[in-house]
Design a protein around this nucleic acid. Structure first.
Lengths: 244, 244
DNA sequence: CGGTCACTTGATCGTCTTCAATACCAGTGG
DNA sequence: CCACTGGTATTGAAGACGATCAAGTGACCG
């Protein structure tokens, strides 16, 4: 599984006061900063665009920046020397990246579709945090939530069957983003089967076979390879929870 | 794998100003609070003792408290309805527990040996954090570090072989606590084979077999079931890293 | 159209699990 | 002192789930 290494593209901030009109603001830690200071926030951030397949964070590199996704979806992953890959998460709009205390990144990040993000230097963000304690609180909240998600994923990787993993994955995807309260029946999967496999600790073949099986059993439909319809949400949830 | 449910024991805070003389303070978030305020800190905490096997946090219960381990080792875990268990971490002196934003605990915690910890009510800790921003910063640091560790564990659970998992586990245990810089050659394993299995996503039998194999190859020695000696640290690290 | 890439499907294989028996150790009481 | 017990660990044999290897399909695109 090779990782493309093309360069991300730095954009001129389009229009005045980009932060004030940011799509991601409502979902992001930046909402801790009052409207009146949005212009200042904008001056500390650099807007960057990354084409699909672009790796914009490299595990092990000096961690000079923080990131805030404002568009698209990216995958975070770790690699073993022989190329085995574990995707630790898919991140979308509003997601904050780079919370490593160490001086190097603990994971790599690659754009799945067209991704846009804000980049803050470590030192400037530090200053921002000192000035807006509310932002630090929000970050702690975010980190806590991710920790809970990470533990859930450990349960999945350590103890669930392939079937249960796919069911968990589909169930969680249906609850993503705006549909947090009202799970969608139909949704897109921007990532490839290979990505799903590396996220669930399986192989491409097992992912494909298991999806086919779930479909043949009437739990889901697969209108296209990038789209899923949940036909039996309750049954899927039961399966995801590992009910005996 | 049954989970004992006996009650933890609440102690009278022995002696005056227990926080000032706390063994865990240097390793804990409490070091963000100045010496002069130690007495106040002590009044917000309740010292609790838990015998081996005692479950002192139950996944799903209302999350009213935070915890700070001051003695012993505990295991954190999640269960599936049919009893499958994933241990998400072993926590020792100085470890801070309960960072769930949700109103229920996301995991259970059980004492391995004799554990002592401080218990803070959620509301009182919130007040403490508002008063000592440095403590909030420390918490964010702690959470970030745990997040990095969680990602490493996902890599292990999703992509490493049984051999590599055991090597990783032993290598990380040798670096625990005070021996962070100078890995110990010899150390105790307070947890059972079952605990190790549930931490590494394996079965007891595979853990036992794999340890035996590592021993027969001269990488480790096993003087007793609760003690390990690393004979070939470099080779073990290479194995843990998944070198091809 | 030919080429590439992602996905699906089939057959075989291997690692780890499951089932089962045995060994071990500490604690208890005869 | 030694049999007895319960819990934990080791070891062996058989089985299963998912991996690997291999072939085939379909969609997109130059």
């Amino acid at each position: 599984m090779t990782v493309p290494l093309s360069r991300p593209l730095v954009l001129d901030p389009a229009g005045a006061d980009p932060c004030a009109h940011c799509d991601a603001r409502h979902a992001s830690v930046c909402n801790a900063i009052p409207d009146s200071d949005m212009a200042r926030l904008a001056t500390t951030a650099v807007v960057v665009e990354a084409a699909p397949g672009t790796t914009f964070i490299n595990e092990g590199d000096a961690a000079g920046c923080f990131f805030n996704i404002t568009r698209g979806t990216a995958k975070l992953f770790k690699l073993l020397p022989d190329g085995r890959r574990q995707i630790t998460g898919f991140v979308g709009v509003g997601h904050f990246l780079g919370l490593a205390v160490s001086d190097t990144y603990a994971f790599s990040a690659e754009a799945i579709d067209h991704v846009r993000f804000c980049r803050f230097s470590r030192t400037r963000l530090r200053a921002l945090l000192d000035e807006y304690p509310l932002m630090e609180k929000r970050l702690l909240e975010v980190a806590s939530n991710e920790l809970v998600a990470a533990q859930e994923q450990m349960l999945l990787l350590g103890r669930k069957t392939a079937r249960e993993r796919l069911a968990s994955f589909l169930a969680s995807q249906s609850r993503l983003g705006v549909s947090c309260q009202h799970p969608r029946q139909r949704f897109a999967l921007p990532m490839t089967r290979g990505d799903i496999a590396d996220y669930l600790g399986l192989t491409i073949e097992t992912v494909s076979r298991t999806l086919t099986k779930l479909r043949s059993e009437g739990l889901i439909e697969i209108p296209s390879t990038t789209e899923v319809v949940i036909r039996a949400p309750a049954a899927l949830e039961r399966l995801a929870a590992g009910a005996a």
